[in-house]
């Protein structure tokens, strides 16, 4: 029996060498339990060592291997060849990011935005809290539920890749960064909301979002960044009304 095969149409781009990306097609063995990443690794190890891409955990939690698979942003460790077979699989670098090489995109913009939203617990007494047995800050399971979903973000960048607003306005803070800010704002242990709002509420923050909603559709971890953004809009609007109606209020 001859082994079944499948074609991969992979975007290549070598800076300094190629002016713009080209497509290279590889034929690899087809296995119904192989994911796209397995096929790429097969190419690199057996056919063409010069193909570059990122990957690490192969279990959908490290966030390294996001690419466009047949035009949709996906984790390639969770996109099975059988979803395309017998058609060829088209593999491209994540949309909306500068391509550094082949399937590798530049995500420094996100890394910068992530720090901007102060994604950590802020409270005055943080460094003086006692440690050890019995000194956890109490948080009920219900309070944990308030934010946990938004803390499931693996920073895989699929949401930015699906966001047309980010494509048109790269200054937009974007889905993941805002979802993570919201995660801390909703954490009962945190007191830092007012410090995050200047960035979140700026013109490049939540108000850029026109609620296309595709970020939440492509999110492999069901974070629902669109909800985080819309809820932050509502909360910010409430704050504004409160400050108008009660200017003496200490907000």
């Amino acid at each position: 029996m001859t082994e079944s095969t499948i074609k991969l149409a992979v975007t290549r781009y070598r800076p300094g060498q190629d002016r713009e990306p080209t497509v290279q097609t590889y034929t690899v063995p087809y296995h119904d339990d192989w994911v796209v990443l397995d096929a790429l690794q097969y190419v690199k190890d057996n056919i063409d060592g010069t193909l570059s891409f990122r990957w690490s955990c192969h279990m959908g939690v490290c966030g390294s291997c996001g690419m466009m698979v047949d035009g949709t942003p996906k984790l390639t460790c969770a996109a099975f060849l059988r979803e395309s077979y017998p058609r060829e699989v088209r593999v491209e670098p994540l949309a909306n990011f500068p391509v550094v090489r082949d399937l590798i995109v530049d995500i420094d913009d996100f890394m910068h935005k992530l720090s901007e939203v102060k994604p950590y617990i802020i409270r005055e007494d943080l460094d003086s809290l006692p440690l050890g047995l019995g000194h956890e800050l109490r948080q009920t399971p219900a309070e944990l539920e308030d934010f946990k979903q938004f803390g499931m973000c693996i920073n895989c960048m699929l949401c930015y890749s699906a966001c047309p607003v980010y494509a048109m306005e790269p200054k937009f803070l974007g889905p993941a960064a805002i979802a993570l800010a919201h995660r801390y704002n909703m954490d009962s242990r945190d007191q830092g909301r007012n410090q995050r709002m200047p960035v979140i509420g700026s013109s490049e923050g939540i108000w850029e979002c026109t609620f296309v909603g595709e970020c939440s559709v492509v999110c492999p971890k069901h974070v629902d960044p669109a909800a985080a953004i819309q809820r932050t809009k509502l909360a910010t609007t409430n704050d504004w009304f409160k400050s108008m109606l009660m200017p003496w209020g200490n907000r």
């Binding site: 781009y13 300094g16 990306p21 035009g71 949709t72 909306n96 391509v99 420094d108 047309p164 909603g213």
Partner: peptide
């Protein structure tokens, strides 16, 4: 921090992006 950045390629958003899937279309 990196050494000076190699020039990357930034693909532009196509004019027909909103036709590329049903949800984008419904959004429009």
């Amino acid at each position: 921090m990196h050494a000076p950045l190699a020039p990357g390629y930034r693909p532009a958003l196509s004019n027909g992006w909103w036709l590329s899937n049903r949800r984008y279309f419904l959004y429009m």
